[in-house]
Design a protein around this nucleic acid. Sequence first.
RNA 1: GCGAGAGUGGCGAAACUGGCAGACGCACUGGAUUUAGGAUCCAGCGGGCGAAAGCCCUUGGGGGUUCAACUCCCCCCUCUCGCACCA
Length: 781
Amino acid sequence: GRIHMGHVRVYAIGDLLARYKWMRGFNVLHPMGWDAFGLPAENAAIEHNVHPAIWTYANIDNMKAQLRKMGISYDWDRELATCDPAYYRWEQLVFLRMLERGLAYRRRSTVNWCPGCRTVLANEQVEGGRCWRCDSEVTPREIEGWFFKITAYADELLEWCDKLPGWPERVLTMQKNWIGRSEGAEFDLPVAGRPDLTMRVFTTRPDTVFGMTYAVLAPEHPLVDRMVTDPAERARVTAFRAEVARESEIERLAADRPKRGVRLSAKIVNPFNDAELPLFIADYVLMGYGTGAIMAVPGEDQRDWDFAKQHGLPIIETVARPAGWTGEAYAGDGVKVNSGFLNGLSTPDAKRKAIDWLVERGLGISKVNYRLRDWGISRQRYWGAPIPVLHCERCGIVPEREENLPVILPRDVQLSGTGGSPLADAPGFVNAPCPTCGGRARRETDTMDTFVESSWYFLRYCSPHYEHGMFEGAAADYWMPVDQYIGGIEHAVLHLLYARFYTKVLRDLGMTKVSEPFTALLSQGMVIKDGAKMSKSKGNVVDPDDLIRTYGADTARLFSLFAAPPAKDLDWNDHGVEGASRFLNRVWRFVIGHGDELRRGARSAVPTTDASRAFRRTIHETIKRVTDDIETDFGFNTAISAVMELVNALHAFETASLDAVPAPERAALLREGVETVLLLLAPFSPHVTEELWSQLGHDVSVFKQRWPDADPVALRRAEVTVVVQVDGRVRGRLVVDVDAPEPRVRELALADDKVRSWVSGRAVERVVVIPNRLVNIVTRG
RNA sequence: GCGAGAGUGGCGAAACUGGCAGACGCACUGGAUUUAGGAUCCAGCGGGCGAAAGCCCUUGGGGGUUCAACUCCCCCCUCUCGCACCA
């Protein structure tokens, strides 16, 4: 509803880059829009009895006003809001296309159910296993819902992780791990005495099959019901299932807690050696991964080891342990032992041979599995884009006709936070004729996950008012992919993976040529105050409006860029803001105070004194530093400190040059220094610099100037200071010619009085010379 | 728990590819200016010892590699983000 310092920070970064690229001559598209659907609006509606649309648009007005005060250079002509039917109609269309191609499908899945409110809860609405509103115990419930088949793109998403050099490595690593590709085998375990049943398992370690001492089914596995016939056993299973259902997936997978399980009366057979083995259901096996069933090899898997120890099951080692091994399960590679026809092979060879053995007998296949699951997009909520399908009594699920899009979200719906999907209570919306047979049908009442809207908005920005499709091909071809995306690290897997997936789907629908939406990604850190994330409940918020009122937008922006590098968390400190303000005032006073002299100064001057040359070198070193900092690693904080140093040098030169430098030369150099400061500072603090630029007599905006280039002549240096170490400790310094030959530097270092006093009485064993930098004299004795 | 990061003065931080640890800024101290306060300017400012020159110690903790380690390797601690219906 209100912008906070986190927004100030991320938008200051974006605006800095936009203005910088603009000054470098690029055509920059710098848009802003509102990801407006979602749970918060619905909660506000319930709490304050205001319609989500009214609440949302009021917030948009607020935030827009605040952003304008910050002076961010957005192209407001491209503004969009995702809750606008003119926006979401296109994702409804894409939904239909995905439905045709089987990329959108319906299946059952488990949700959080509050029996008190009789509604589905988001994870965020579950606190300690209870409903945040009514405190009822939340139970799992199976419901039908819509899914996007992101798993069909798992391999491509993974491959592209290695082709995105502009992304932070840590984000790519998280995505790779999230996709979690693993190669292995899938095969059947016969159930003893039940020729009608087999249990299919997936393993990444087919080489360890001879170490199988038991097998496990996920408690929810449908096979369990077919195996368990005895009423007493059935009761035990039911009780265990209820227990497991109360645990979160995180708890079930936690490696440091006892693994719970129930032994079934049925037994399975290891096809490799016909051994009859016990079968369990256990919490650490999930229905959602692999086949929901595993062969357990405690010798080589720590989870299985823990379970085996707790249940007194045998452990067989099938890989020779490395010398000195003291651990429990050994997951590494090695030579196979206790493994029948695999004995003596290496782990990779044994994997291949075991798979061949299965394939030859028709018992199993080589299989790749992913940790990634399909994307559940159904929400039993009001404030979202309607899913454009109908349920017909006769025809079943029928897509809405394209010409009937958009399916508009109705306005008059009562929101209570209880009961089923709010749209189900809007008869005008729900009841509609079947697009196929014209008979009675009910509209889908689930809405789409808001991550769907945020998966393509960047494409819409290319042609935000286009009415014949999601976006105009030519415009998207011109602008896409996004050259610089900026967002929080919290988006590392979900949003950023969904947007990548959705872009690939649009490509395969022939709508765009790009395979990846974002060429470069900057993940910025959070804004922290007093050791905690800024939040109302902690009472540590800084309101950007107050800050802008007191110090102006330029100061707020400058400080948020100066206080920390963008990828790091920023620790907010009111005193620091004071410093940024002081710096801008210092620049202001200098320009105003020297206005006449600066305006008189010539455009360039050849420095004739040492002081002039040194000052001009500082100017051009600063240009180089600031440019490199922005270009190579988003080093905005060090870029600002370089400009601060230049301003310090400007003051020093102003004083030192009074009598020492001819007046025209001094005026020209001061002007070059001041104009450089303004140009370099312009993307950081646009208002002050623009004003001062015009005060200097320019009538064209500072942002229409070329970004300065460092003059190589000014950068040239004759001498450097070289540090001299004795045994790794600094004992002196030498001023030598740049690129002085090594033997000469070595000789000078050894001849230095201070160095000699440290070396005397010891033998020089070695002298390390790092050109233009350092000499280290290593002694013995 | 799993996956991914981070940890440097009183504080925010800097340090190219392994090469002077602490740039720049804040806070603080002293001085100048001022009726006073504010603002501004000058100087000092990691810790210990010292009058000073200087010496020793110091980058979460412990080990290692190297002429040289904030940086590379191993073990440990703490904090942050994500974990699929918050977005």
